[in-house]
Nucleic acid binder design. Structure first.
Length: 507
RNA sequence: GGCGACGUAGCUCAGUUGGUUAGAGCACUCGGCUCAUAAUCGAGUUGUCGUCGGUUCGAUUCCGACCGUCGCCA
C-alpha cells in the first residue's frame, strides 16, 4: 500500500569540500528515496547545505569575499557532486535562503513564546583564537585543545534553550518507540546520555552577524546548529505553508552519521517538542568508513584521510554506479565499515562485471545467435519464477528495514540463479526453436526484474540494460509489487549486445 | 574511572527463545562448460565459535572473571 516517505541527509557545512563521507550518507538516502518511488510512495528527498556560522565568516574574510559569496561557491560544489553521483533529491535547501530564515524565526519565536527560551548569563573558558567557548572538561591542562593556548574566562548574555526541562520527555519518547533511533546500540547510547541529566544550551551569539537574526532581540543571531536543524522543517513548508508541513511531518527518516547523533536525537527532538510539534519518527544512524588498504590510504605525503578523497576520484575508476554500488552493497548500514580501493575492486568485479554485466552479455549473444536477435517471451511456469518472487520479497523487506546491503544480496541471488539456470540448460548447444526461446525468455525476464529491483542502487546501468533488452521507457517508471511479478517480458523485442556494461578492473 | 558493545572459517560478516553434521559471500583448490567481460556452473578444504571457570542431561547461545578492540560519558 502506497505511503508517504520523507527522507533527509544532514545539510553539509559549506566550509568542507564534498568527500566520500558525505557521499556515503547521500547515496544511502538517494537509494532509499528511489526504492520508495518504485513502490509508489509519495516521496520527498531533501539534502542541502549549512551556510552560517563563524567558520564560514572567517574563511570568507581570508579569501577576501563576502560570506554569501563563499557559501554560494561551496554550495555549488555539493550540488555538482550530487549531480555527478546521480542523486535524485527533490530539493536542495540552503540555510541562507529567505524561506529558511522565515522558518527558523517562526520556530524559535514559538519556543520563546512558550517560555523555553530565556535570557541568561553564560560564563566559561573562551579561546580567542577559536572565538568559541569550551566546557571545562574539553580543556587540555587548562588550555585550548586546538590551539594549546591559555583560555580566558568570559561572560556573555545569551538566550538559552531550556533543554533540561525535556530530559524525561525525551526518555519517554525513545522508550515508547523502539524504532525511533536505529540501530539499537545508538539508541542505548542516547538513553545513557539523557539519564545523566541535561544542561540548558546557549543558542544565540552576539559576537558575529553571519546567522539568522533573533527576531525579539536586536544584535543577536542564532548559533549555527540551532538554525541548521530546522532545515528539515523549512523544506516542507514550516512557517510558510502549514498545510504542506502537516502532510509530511513527523513521518521523516533522518539519515545521519554517528558524529552528529546528539544534535539529532536530543537537541532537535527537544526543540520540536518545545515548539509544540512531534519529534522525528526515525533517526537512522550509520557508522564511519574506516580507510584501509594501500592504494588510497598510503601516499608519499603520509597517511591520507577519508575526508581527503573526493567522490570524483573514485567515479573516474569505477563509474557512477560502481561507486554507488560499493557503498550500498559492501557496507552494512549501522556499524563502522572498512573501506579500501582493493575491496572496491573486488566487489565491482564480482557483482557488477562477473555477475550482472556478464549475464547481460551472454544472454544478448545467445539471443543474437539462436533467436535472430529477437528476445522471446518467458515460460510462465519457469523454475525461475519462484526465485524471482523470493528475491522480490526479500529485497523489499530489507529496504524497508533500511538494510541496503541485505536488499542487494537478495536481488543478486536472482542474478546468480539465472546464470545457473542457463548453465543447466545450455541453450547455446541447441538448435533454434521453441526450447531455446523458452530459456532465453526466462533469462530476459529475470533481467527485467533484476533491473527494476537494482535500479535504486545502480540507476544508470539499469536504464541501459532495460534499453538493451528492448523495453520502452525506464525501470524507474515501473511500480512494485506488480512490475515484479513473473512473466511480463513481452517477447518480440530487439535485443542489443553492446559493449561490456562493467569492464573488469585489473587490480 | 562509570556505562555499554563487540571478539565465529584467509577476508567481510549471519547465527531467532541453549539441543543432534556451526552457515553465507569473497578468496582458494579440483572438475565441467565454452554462450559470455579468462566470465560461468558444480564439488570441496579450513573454524579449540577470545581465554578460564560455573549453571545444565547438553552452551557459540545463560552467568562470572580475565584478555583484547572500540564507543559514549566523566
Amino acid at each position: 500500500m502506497p505511503g508517504r516517505f520523507y527522507v533527509t541527509t544532514p545539510i553539509y557545512y559549506v566550509n568542507d569540500a564534498p568527500h566520500i563521507g558525505h557521499a556515503y550518507t547521500t547515496v544511502i538516502a538517494d537509494a532509499l528515496a528511489r526504492w520508495h518511488r518504485l513502490v509508489g510512495d509519495d516521496t520527498y528527498f531533501l539534502t542541502g547545505t549549512d551556510e552560517h556560522g563563524l567558520k564560514v565568516a572567517q574563511s570568507a574574510t581570508e579569501a577576501g569575499i563576502t560570506p554569501q559569496e563563499q557559501a554560494d561557491r561551496n554550495a555549488g560544489r555539493f550540488a555538482e557532486a550530487w549531480e555527478l553521483l546521480g542523486i535524485s533529491n527533490d530539493d536542495f535547501i540552503r540555510t541562507t535562503e529567505p524561506r529558511h530564515h522565515a522558518a527558523v524565526q517562526a520556530m524559535l519565536q514559538q519556543i520563546h513564546d512558550n517560555g523555553d527560551i530565556e535570557l541568561d548569563t553564560y560564563e566559561g573558558p573562551y579561546c580567542v583564537s577559536c572565538e568559541a567557548y569550551y566546557a571545562e572538561g574539553e580543556l587540555v591542562d587548562g588550555m585550548c585543545p586546538i590551539h594549546n593556548k591559555p583560555v580566558e574566562r568570559l561572560r556573555e548574555e545569551n538566550y538559552f534553550f531550556r533543554l533540561s526541562r525535556y530530559e524525561q520527555r525525551l526518555i519517554d519518547w525513545i522508550e515508547s518507540d523502539p524504532e525511533a533511533i536505529q540501530p539499537v546500540g545508538k539508541r542505548n547510547e542516547v538513553l545513557g546520555f539523557l539519564r545523566q541529566g541535561l544542561d540548558d544550551v546557549s543558542i544565540t551569539r552576539t559576537s558575529l552577524d553571519w546567522g539568522v537574526p533573533v527576531p525579539w532581540a536586536e544584535g543577536h543571531v542564532f548559533y549555527v546548529w540551532y538554525d541548521a536543524l530546522i532545515n528539515y522543517a523549512t523544506a516542507i513548508g514550516y512557517g510558510t505553508d502549514d498545510e504542506r508541513f502537516r502532510t509530511w511531518w513527523p513521518a521523516v527518516h533522518h539519515i545521519i552519521g554517528k558524529e552528529i547523533i546528539r544534535f539529532h536525537c536530543v537537541y532537535w527532538p527537544a526543540m520540536l517538542m518545545a515548539a509544540g510539534l512531534e519529534p522525528p519518527k526515525h533517526v537512522l544512524v550509520h557508522g564511519w568508513l574506516l580507510l584501509g588498504g594501500e592504494k588510497l590510504s598510503k601516499t608519499v605525503h603520509g597517511q591520507a584521510k577519508l575526508t581527503d578523497i573526493a567522490p570524483a576520484r573514485l567515479v573516474e575508476d569505477f563509474g557512477v554506479d560502481g561507486f554507488r554500488h560499493h557503498f550500498l552493497h559492501d557496507q552494512p548500514f549501522g556499524p563502522d565499515g572498512d573501506f579500501s580501493y582493493e575491496a572496491m575492486v573486488a566487489r565491482y568485479n564480482s557483482d557488477l562485471a562477473n555477475n550482472l554485466g556478464n549475464l547481460l552479455s551472454r544472454v544478448a549473444t545467445v539471443v543474437a545467435k539462436k533467436c535472430d536477435g529477437i528476445g522471446p517471451a518467458p515460460d510462465p511456469d519457469s523454475p525461475l519464477a519462484a526465485v524471482a518472487a523470493d528475491a522480490y520479497a526479500d529485497t523489499a523487506a530489507a529496504w524497508d528495514r533500511i538494510q541496503p546491503s541485505v536488499a542487494l544480496d537478495a536481488t543478486w541471488r536472482l542474478i546468480k540463479e539465472t546464470n545457473a539456470h542457463l548453465e543447466s540448460n545450455e541453450p547455446w548447444k541447441m538448435e533454434p526453436g521453441p526450447e531455446v526461446e523458452r530459456i532465453m525468455g526466462d533469462a530476459l525476464e529475470a533481467l527485467r526484474i533484476v533491473t527494476i529491483l537494482a535500479s535504486p542502487a545502480v540507476p544508470a546501468s539499469c536504464q541501459e540494460i532495460w534499453r538493451r533488452i528492448g523495453l520502452p521507457g525506464s525501470p524507474e517508471d515501473q511500480r512494485l509489487p506488480d512490475a515484479g511479478a513473473w512473466g511480463q517480458y513481452p517477447g518480440g523485442l530487439a535485443v542489443e549486445k553492446g559493449d561490456p556494461l562493467f569492464p573488469r578492473i585489473k587490480a
